[in-house]
Amino acid sequence: MIGGNPTATNSVSREDGAGFVLVRLSGEVDLSWSQDVRRVVLAAFAGDAAVGIELSAVGYIDSSGIAALVEGLQQARANGRRFALVAPSDAVRAVLELARLDRVFAIVADTDALLASA
C-alpha cells in the first residue's frame, strides 16, 4: 500500500513544544477510533500555541479521520491560530487530493516550518 505500514498500531499522542503543540497520529485512521483523534485534536487548541498534526506514519485515513482534521482547521480559523499538517504520508496526501482538500490545509515538512508559517 502507498505510504505507512498497514500493521502499524493505531495511536495518537501529544507533544507540547516551545510555542507549538504537535499531535502525532499513526496507523489506520478510521471510524473505529477517529472520535479519539477528534478529541485530542480539539484539545490541542486549549492554549494559544500553533497546532500541528504529524501524519508521516499514517497508512490509511478515511473520511471520518479527514473530518477530524477539518474540524481542527475550523477551530484554528475561529481562534486565529496557526494550524498545519506535518509531513503527511503518501496515503494521506492521496486522500486529501481526492477530497480536493490538499490546497485547503497548510502542509509543512516539520515543526520548524510550522512555527515559521505565518
Partner: peptide, 11 residues
C-alpha cells in the same frame, strides 16, 4: 461538495 471545508457528506 469536494473541497468544501465542512464536515458531512464527504464519504
Amino acid at each position: 461538495t469536494l473541497g468544501d471545508c465542512r464536515c458531512g457528506g464527504l464519504g
